[in-house]
Amino acid sequence: MRTLYFDCFSGISGDMVIGALIDAGGDPVQMEEELKKLNIDEEYNLSWGKVVKNGITSTKFDVILTSKSEQTPEHSHSHAQEHSHGHSHSHEHEHSHGHERNHIHVPHTHHSSRTYKQIVEAINEANFNESVANMSLAIFKKIGEAEGHIHGLPLDKVHFHEVGAVDSIIDIIGAAILIDQLGIESVQSSAIPTGSGHVHIDHGIYPVPAPATLEILKGVPIASKDIRSELATPTGAAIAAVLAETFGSLPAMNVELIGYGAGTKTFENHPNVLRVIIGETQ
């Protein structure tokens, strides 16, 4: 059985998943074409390229929002120098915005958000193949239910601020497209390190893991890591929680493909990358 293993020794986020899957041999151009079915491609540009993280060559994936996106100003990162595919991002640039972009908040204004219902409709109308649609819908439902639980809202009243924003829609559906494209039949994962400390979000200073992330990881083994930083984002946590059938050490497999996906942050003592290992298991 063709199996994908998420080796999350430095956590997991949506952009790290896509970077790792591209690094392992996924076709980002085909993914970009598929994503056009959502009819929101005026709102973003995609960028991917090789970076070195503490000695490991990995792929950094970015969603660059355009002026047509529905973002609030503080999230409209203008990355003019990143517009070309395969651009090697500078280290200074990697520090400029952390994994916080994947946090979900109750919006300041309704125009800056998309509702859970709108996202479901967009996926259903896009005519993705069944596998891609089912994976994407299941991941969004996981995040929506967690967010609704934290804020005391029913699913159809949940507004996604940044996860509803373009970058995380791309991260989730893009990951589903690449997993489908790579012919993955089964997903397994290591335990998920969440990191520790605090993170600043719209509601104030929250503990790490953020409440939505912890809710998403109910029933999933969490690994302890001393790093005072947010290692698992809600998007990354939901991808692993929904897709992985089991959590534990690397299964016995005939390894075929290996990929490293770079996170935005750089840590002193270990490479901030997600490793994916793809091969045949019994």
Score class of each variant (00 low, 15 high):
residue 109 T to R: 04
residue 162 E to T: 06
residue 110 H to M: 03
residue 58 S to C: 15
residue 243 L to A: 03
residue 125 E to A: 07
residue 81 Q to Y: 08
residue 181 Q to K: 10
residue 157 K to R: 09
residue 254 N to A: 05
residue 191 A to N: 07
residue 77 H to V: 06
residue 256 E to D: 13
residue 269 N to A: 11
residue 184 I to E: 01
residue 214 L to A: 10
residue 266 T to C: 07
residue 125 E to T: 04
residue 134 N to R: 15
residue 166 V to K: 14
residue 177 I to A: 12
residue 280 E to S: 04
residue 266 T to Q: 13
residue 79 H to S: 10
residue 256 E to N: 05
residue 172 I to S: 09
residue 1 M to P: 01
residue 122 A to Q: 07
residue 168 S to W: 00
residue 20 A to E: 03
residue 22 I to S: 04
residue 86 G to P: 02
residue 170 I to L: 05
residue 118 Q to W: 00
residue 203 H to F: 04
residue 143 I to Y: 03
residue 278 I to S: 07
residue 5 Y to R: 10
residue 139 I to F: 07
residue 129 N to R: 15
residue 106 V to N: 00
residue 82 E to W: 15
residue 259 G to Y: 10
residue 156 D to S: 09
residue 115 T to R: 15
residue 93 H to T: 04
residue 59 T to P: 05
residue 226 D to T: 02
residue 202 D to Y: 06
residue 215 E to G: 02
residue 236 G to K: 01
residue 186 S to L: 11
residue 26 G to F: 07
residue 260 Y to S: 09
residue 81 Q to S: 12
residue 132 V to D: 05
residue 18 I to D: 11
residue 101 R to L: 05
residue 247 F to I: 02
residue 200 H to G: 05
residue 22 I to V: 09
residue 135 M to N: 09
residue 138 A to D: 14
residue 43 E to W: 08
residue 10 S to G: 14
residue 210 A to K: 07
residue 264 T to R: 15
residue 3 T to M: 03
residue 86 G to W: 14
residue 24 A to D: 03
residue 7 D to F: 02
residue 251 P to G: 12
residue 281 T to K: 03
residue 192 I to C: 06
residue 123 I to G: 05
residue 54 N to T: 13
residue 232 A to F: 11
residue 14 G to L: 12
residue 123 I to K: 08
